[in-house]
């Protein structure tokens, strides 16, 4: 009886191993396809080059950032779909602490976009005439620009809401009770 039971366990274990192995193979293929289609939730580094270590105010960003210990500036345009997904999460000005939002108007003057998502707050900036992105040489959105000790440190794309919150220097907790303070 014991022998039969052990044989059954061994056979079942082999079957389960092969089935899980086949699933792993399938998952690997899906990941490969996602990578090929460029729909992985992975930020891409944006090279700052000589801008690294520069003061934010040099590029038209608020001078308060020159004294920020840790901060992140999110550049969004009113045209890209990912930007709309990101600001939809910030609707009503629910911008996490230590995060600033720069709205780059492409289609209009940007005010319509700000009003649509209720992006009203002291840490939301409208980049009139693309003065900030122009001086930074930034031609992509959405992009997160990180500031540490008042200096530009690094930048990367923000492919999702999840990555946006992950990029905030002060960890942000989802809460059903209240939105983060502006």
């Amino acid at each position: 009886m014991t022998t039969v039971l052990l044989v059954v366990v061994c056979l079942l274990a082999v079957v389960v191993f092969i089935q899980i192995g086949a699933q792993v193979e399938l998952f690997e293929q899906v990941r490969q396809i996602r990578g090929y289609l460029d729909i992985e939730d992975k930020p891409t580094t944006v090279e700052l080059g000589t801008l690294q270590g520069a003061s934010p105010s040099r590029f038209g960003l608020p001078s308060v950032l020159d004294h920020a210990e840790q901060a992140m500036v999110l550049f969004v345009s009113d045209k890209c779909e990912t930007c709309r997904n990101l600001v939809a999460a910030l609707r009503g000005g629910a911008v996490p602490l230590s995060m600033w939002v720069v709205v780059v108007p492409v289609r209009g003057d940007g005010n319509e976009f700000i009003n649509e998502f209720g992006l009203h707050g002291e840490r939301v900036i409208l980049d009139d005439e693309e003065r900030i992105v122009g001086s930074l040489g930034l031609d992509l959105t959405p992009v997160a620009l990180h500031i540490a000790e008042g200096k530009l440190t690094r930048a990367h794309t923000v492919p999702s809401v999840r990555q946006m919150y992950a990029a905030t220097p002060v960890s942000y907790q989802y809460s059903l009770a209240r939105k983060p303070s502006v």
């Binding site: 345009s77 045209k79 693309e130 930034l138 959405p142």
Partner: peptide
Amino acid sequence: PNPTRHENAEVPAA
């Protein structure tokens, strides 16, 4: 994002 709304997922700001 919803695949029906994928246009201009990442576009030049300027």
